[in-house]
Structures are given as structure tokens and as C-alpha cells.
Amino acid sequence: MAENISDNTPQGTSQHTAGAFDIRNLIGGLIGVYGIILTLLGLFNASDEELARGDGLNINLWAGLGMLVVGIGFITWARLRPVVVPSDPEQES
């Protein structure tokens, strides 16, 4: 990846980064959304019967918070170190 970054030209940064198609954004996005859903379920939808099954551990809440952290981590990584797509005439059009 180091070679790619050095290819980066000052005028075309936004055009040449992989952006939303960077796999890290897709991973971060999906895991992050899972995190939001699970956290909310853990906070507002945890029935006593469900909690009893796991001997009181609210797994939705804790797994949700963990996924939220991982998701944000991936998106931050992709922001800080963007993948640069080599300029290719076919892809520019």
C-alpha cells in the first residue's frame, strides 16, 4: 500500500481514493449497524426470560457495544489511511 500512497497526486485525491467501496468501510458499516441494533435491543428489549437463559448476562448489550467499537474502528482506519485506486482510463469514464 505504501507504493500506492506515493502515487497519489495532489490535484485528484478525492477522485482516486476507493471511498465507500473500500472493503473496510463496508465491514465497519455492517458491523457498526449490527452494534447499534444489538445495543438498542439490549437496552430496551431484554426480557427477563431471555436474560435468565444466559444467567443474567445481557449479551445483546455487551456484544452490541463491542461491535460498535469495532465498526467505528474500521471506518476510522479507512479515513486515516485511504486506499488509492491507480488511475486507469477505463475507470475514470
Binding site: 458491523i31 449490527y34 456484544a63
Partner: peptide, 17 residues
């Protein structure tokens, strides 16, 4: 690669609980 993370997201909490 995406599957890897979804599989870990599935199995790690299962292991913990």
C-alpha cells in the same frame, strides 16, 4: 473478509455467554 468478521461477531459473543 467481510464473512470473517461476521463469523467472529457471531461466535465470540456465543463463546462468552
Amino acid at each position: 473478509v467481510l464473512q470473517f468478521f461476521v463469523i467472529v461477531a457471531a461466535l465470540l459473543p456465543l463463546t462468552i455467554i
